[in-house]
């Protein structure tokens, strides 16, 4: 092998790094460094650790099992676990129904409140009350409301003479799922209402007035001007809520804890029972990573819709 003499000596890697950090170019990176370190330590490290544990039989009370690599065994077991896939499907349905109904009701509320000219601020504050309750309290509240023997709903129906036998709200498969969706909607509709109200308040008056001058009726104004303008707000609200909907876990745990007989089992109740009560954190994390597919699907869908809505607003059509 022959060597050639270079006209100048090439800096070594360490000299290059030192030079970079002393240059002007490094300033933005240095300023961002604390934030990057914080994000790495609070987001990336736990993510990587939990991803690793999903390939182990990590048991919470046996720290040594963190290093027992078992390959894809947790994932293989999950593929054949009917209970898990039922919970997966039920969670998908729960999110779809709850978010859509919350959006529709939130939109209705926002439109109504937007019409009010006196006391709107007070009403907006009142509207935010359900958001202030912790999901555990909401769970206890609705567990009592839907209790079959002492609950408010059954007592009201008895008093009105509409039923002669108590309705098992939290037992029957359909009614139990209805009850937890009802509680979730009660708790979170106001989030949609507030976000959409903000959109309505930012709505320019000119296109609406122009449409009215052109003879559009109220429905046409809403359908062709107000709604398209609001759509970016709707999709932002949907995206935020689809990521935040797991807050409902505490509520479901108190109301049914996934029962009876798994009829209201959602991914969140199943994962918590597996990870904490059964201490099988490796398996619970594998469930978590499979269920992330759900979050990715919802987020991807809403972002695409958001981009489309913004393009529409930008006058592309």
């Amino acid at each position: 092998m022959t060597t050639t003499t270079e006209p100048y000596s090439r800096p070594t890697t360490s000299e290059g790094i030192t030079a970079f950090f002393r240059s002007q170019k490094a300033i933005p990176y240095l300023l961002l460094l604390p934030a990057i370190l914080v994000i790495l330590s609070v987001v990336l490290v736990p993510l990587l650790l939990s991803f690793w544990t999903s390939f182990t039989n990590y048991n919470l009370t046996k720290p040594d099992t963190l290093y027992n690599f078992i390959g894809l065994r947790n994932y293989q077991r999950l593929m054949g676990n009917a209970e898990f896939w039922w919970a997966f499907g039920r969670t998908f349905l729960f999110i779809t129904i709850a978010l859509n109904l919350e959006m529709l009701l939130g939109l209705g509320l926002a439109l109504l409140v937007n019409k009010i000219t006196w006391g709107q601020r007070t009403l907006r504050t009142i509207m935010m009350f359900p958001m202030m309750f912790s999901p555990i309290l909401v769970g206890f509240q609705f567990k009592y409301i839907f209790n079959d023997s002492i609950g408010l709903v059954n007592n009201a129906l008895f008093d009105l003479g509409l039923i002669s036998q108590p309705i098992p709200w939290l037992v029957d498969g359909t009614l139990a799922n209805f009850s937890i969706i009802f509680a979730e909607i009660w708790m979170s509709t106001s989030i949609f209402a507030i976000l959409l109200l903000a959109g309505l308040m930012a709505l320019p008056r000119e296109p609406i007035e122009a449409a009215k001058v052109d003879g559009c009726n109220s429905w046409q104004v809403f359908r062709h001007i107000t709604l398209p303008f609001l759509m970016p707000f709707v999709y932002i609200a949907m995206t935020i809520r689809s990521l935040d909907v797991a807050r409902a876990y505490d509520m479901v745990r108190i109301m049914t804890n996934g029962g009876p007989a798994g009829r209201t089992e959602l991914l969140w109740t199943l994962m918590t029972r597996t990870g904490y009560q059964n201490s099988q954190m490796g398996m619970a994390n594998a469930m978590g990573y499979v269920s992330i597919i759900l979050s990715i699907v919802f987020t991807f869908y809403f972002y695409r819709k958001l981009t489309a809505a913004r393009t529409f607003m930008g006058g592309a059509q």
Binding site: S149, W169, V171
Partner: peptide, 21 residues
Amino acid sequence: VPAGTVNYTWDDIGQAFAAGQ
């Protein structure tokens, strides 16, 4: 038994008995 007993824990039963149900 109340149909909802499948969701009951100790406190629910305690309240029902104390209420004379």
